[in-house]
Design a protein around this nucleic acid. Structure first.
Length: 488
RNA sequence: GGCGACAUGGCCAAGUGGUAAGGCGAGGGAUUGCAAAUCCCUUAUUCCCCGGUUCGAAUCCGGGUGUCGCCUCCA
């Protein structure tokens, strides 16, 4: 079964047919590097990275492009405030962004072009548009795109040009023939962020960069173009207009748009003080919890981050790693060898979920079911058939979890990280806990259950929960402890 | 004013014509010294409201209500 994708252009979930059956070309709008990246960027980067990984998993060759916008009003403003050049600022921010992505386990795109590296191509692109009559130099010297000449303008966002209220939020630039026109080249002199052009010194407009970089790297037509919902209009609409005006053909064939990130159901914004940087979030919650939370929602809807969601996620992650550890122990104890067979039913279920418009919540259900089945098997008495079943599930998980980049660390590393974070928070030590556990073990062997229970209660009051098995007593964090760890 | 999206059990959330996934919570059971962990069972005759199309609608159409996004900064 093939992939189906919700295509903003058609408004439907369409069968995805790449123009080259072996090779998928994908472009996603990256960040404008005027500040540190926030969780919304993380979410977008994680999603498209997963799309690329999954398509590769399915056997496609994928070329994935994600740009950096390093020429922009906000960068110029910020840089002048900081007393550095715009490109210095964007260099720093790109470096920070790369670090952020690494910490989230997001793989770099195959191409990560920067606007400043494509100025000559942008200029000749605009010249071509000018030759075709779609671009004109306005009275102020800047170059604009003649929107009304593109008769299908508005097809992506379903906007009607005559209904647009121009200048509602921003003053209309002088020099345009028509208020709906948008800038391709802005004439101005900003140190460090301007280049010579046939129209004078200046810099590219807001939308031209993606059209140019996408076509330079992927060609005039490619398969998937993605970005946040908030880019549909005007950014993507304008990209289509420019690109198709220039090439005369179809630009991106499928447009996918992810929802935005909310914090406690409110859009994340600096003015609401709910702005979370990737750096802070990774430090406070860990990359897996951030990813887990994203996977609870379909990519098209807004994804909410809240203490409740993080708590739920951490409990589930905890549980995932408990099972991961249990499987490792089980395999070692029973001296089982690796399986080369991926459990066929679960593999199919996983692929069906992902093929259905990258339905991550559904895919996560499959993962949970696999883990549950593994536990079920390990609860039973071992036999040949059980063991094979378990191993094929394990084989599947080892192939599929890396796509999601979740549950693949050594479990002890995960537990150690969470536990030490908690112990530090509560000023407790690992030795203290172990001492208490040892005391209790002694009480239990002496059948002094009253004392044993007392120690257990004492630990529980500190957020430490005990697990007695036949061989040993181990400890982990209680629900309340997990809750405390993720309080926003 | 225009365009668009969404509304599903106590909470979160899948599900675009065939009779409501899953998680959390709650209740019961197996297991346990008792717990925890794990597993099993139960927990929405019903999908914001009102009409319509259909043999059949959470899903399609019309109207209403509510929430949100975008309308030239945005992932």
């Amino acid at each position: 079964m093939g992939l189906r994708l919700t295509n903003t252009l058609s408004g439907c979930k369409d069968e995805f047919v790449p123009s080259d059956p072996q090779h998928i070309k994908m472009y996603a709008c990256g960040v404008t590097v005027y500040d540190k990246c926030h969780l919304g960027h993380a979410m977008q980067a994680i999603l498209y990275d997963i799309f690329a990984r999954y398509l590769r998993f399915k056997g496609y060759r994928v070329t994935y492009v994600r740009n950096f916008t390093d020429v922009d009003d906000k960068i110029i403003l910020r840089a002048s405030q900081l007393g550095i050049s715009p490109l210095e600022l964007s260099d720093q921010m790109i470096e920070a962004s790369r670090k952020d992505m690494l910490s989230l386990k997001v793989r770099p795109a195959d191409f990560e072009p920067r606007v400043s590296e494509y100025i000559p191509q942008i200029i000749s692109y605009i010249q071509d548009l000018q030759a075709k009559g779609f671009a004109y130099a306005g009275q102020d010297g800047s170059v604009y795109f003649r929107v009304r000449l593109k008769e299908d303008y508005g097809k992506l966002s379903r906007q009607n040009i005559s209904e647009l209220r121009c200048g509602v939020r921003k003053d209309v630039e002088e020099g345009k023939e028509d208020p709906v026109d948008f800038a391709l080249w802005k004439v101005e002199e900003t140190p460090g962020a301007t280049w010579d052009s046939p129209w004078g010194r200046g810099r590219p407009g807001w939308h031209i960069e993606c059209s140019v970089m996408a076509s330079e790297i992927l060609g005039d037509s490619f398969d998937i173009h993605g970005g946040g919902r908030d880019l549909v209009f005007p950014h993507h609409e304008n990209e289509i207009a420019q690109s198709e005006a220039k090439s005369g053909g179809t630009y991106a064939r499928y447009w996918v748009h992810n929802g935005l990130l909310t914090v406690n159901r409110q859009k994340m914004s600096k003015s609401l003080h709910n702005f979370i940087s990737i750096e802070d979030a990774v430090r406070d919650y860990g990359y897996e919890l951030i990813r887990f939370n994203i996977y609870q929602y379909h990519y098209q809807s807004n994804i909410d981050f809240s203490a409740q969601g993080f708590f739920l996620g951490l409990s589930r992650l905890y549980s995932i790693y408990r099972t991961r550890q249990r499987v490792i122990d089980y395999i070692t104890r029973n001296n089982l060898s690796r399986s080369e067979t991926r459990h066929p039913e679960y593999l199919q279920a996983f692929c069906e979920a992902m093929d259905d418009d990258f339905n991550l919540p559904k895919a996560m259900v499959v993962i949970q079911s696999v883990l549950q089945s593994q536990n079920e098997i390990m609860d039973k008495k071992i036999n040949q058939q059980n063991a094979e079943e378990l191993l094929s599930m394990e084989c599947l998980l080892q192939d599929v979890l890396p796509i999601l980049e979740i549950g693949i660390r050594p479990p002890q590393e995960f537990f150690h990280e969470i536990h030490s974070r908690y112990l530090t928070l509560k000023s407790l030590t690992n030795d203290w806990v172990l001492e208490k556990v040892a005391q209790r073990v002694k009480c239990r062997t002496e059948k002094n259950f009253a004392m044993a229970d007392e120690i257990r209660d004492e630990l529980l009051a500190q957020g430490i929960s005990l697990l007695d098995s036949r061989e040993k007593t181990s400890w982990e964090l209680s629900e309340r402890a997990l809750e405390e760890l993720v309080a926003l």
